[in-house]
Simulated assay, not measured.
Amino acid sequence: MTTVSVVLHAPAWGPQHTTPCQAEPELFFPVSEDGPRSIAQITKAKRLCRGCSRVEDCLQNALDEGHDHGIWGGTTTAERRDIRRRRKTAGAAR
């Protein structure tokens, strides 16, 4: 079993920009993306992301920094892989 230590999920935007993932970071790092407990955890994390004013910045940061684990900007690891793949394909088509 792999253990992931979470110091701070979101980039440091300062105290005036406290985000749900800063208050409850473990929620945003499910053990897997399968199974009823993980799906429920992912659903809750994504719901909190939707209400966050920094969701777009968070997603862009995750894509720029290559974050491979956890919920970032309301997306799962697989969803971010798809976004990267689509961007790469669109860039190659130019």
Rank of each mutant, 00 (worst) to 15 (best):
T2E: 13
T2V: 14
T3P: 06
T3Y: 13
V4Y: 15
V4H: 14
S5Q: 15
S5V: 15
S5R: 15
S5T: 15
V7F: 04
V7M: 11
A10D: 14
A10Q: 10
A12R: 13
A12H: 14
G14T: 08
P15I: 11
P15D: 12
Q16R: 12
Q16F: 05
H17W: 10
T18P: 05
T18I: 13
T19P: 00
P20G: 05
P20Y: 13
Q22K: 08
Q22C: 07
A23T: 14
E24A: 09
E24V: 12
E24P: 04
P25K: 08
P25Y: 10
E26K: 07
E26F: 07
E26M: 05
E26I: 04
L27Q: 01
L27V: 02
F29Y: 14
F29E: 02
P30H: 01
V31H: 15
S32L: 08
S32Q: 06
S32H: 14
E33P: 09
E33M: 11
E33H: 14
D34K: 12
P36F: 02
P36H: 10
P36A: 14
R37F: 01
R37C: 07
R37T: 08
S38T: 03
S38L: 04
A40I: 06
Q41R: 01
Q41I: 00
I42M: 12
K44W: 03
K44L: 05
K44C: 00
A45C: 00
A45W: 01
K46Y: 01
K46S: 02
R47G: 04
C49N: 03
C49S: 01
R50I: 00
G51H: 12
C52E: 05
C52K: 03
S53P: 02
S53E: 13
R54N: 13
V55K: 11
E56W: 04
E56Y: 06
C58T: 01
L59H: 00
Q60Y: 04
Q60C: 00
N61E: 06
A62I: 05
A62N: 02
L63Q: 07
D64C: 02
D64F: 10
D64I: 09
D64R: 14
D64M: 12
E65N: 09
E65Y: 10
G66S: 05
G66Q: 02
G66H: 03
H67A: 07
H67D: 09
D68T: 12
D68F: 10
D68W: 07
G70M: 10
G70R: 08
I71T: 08
G73P: 03
G73Q: 06
G73C: 04
T76H: 05
T77K: 09
T77G: 13
T77W: 04
T77V: 01
A78V: 01
A78K: 09
R80E: 03
R81E: 11
R81F: 09
D82T: 13
I83E: 07
I83P: 06
I83W: 07
R84A: 05
R84S: 10
R84T: 02
R84H: 11
R84K: 12
R85Y: 00
R85G: 00
R86L: 13
R86S: 07
R87I: 04
R87V: 02
K88N: 06
T89W: 11
A90L: 11
A90S: 11
G91I: 05
G91R: 15
G91Y: 11
G91E: 14
A92R: 12
A93S: 12
R94I: 02
R94K: 10
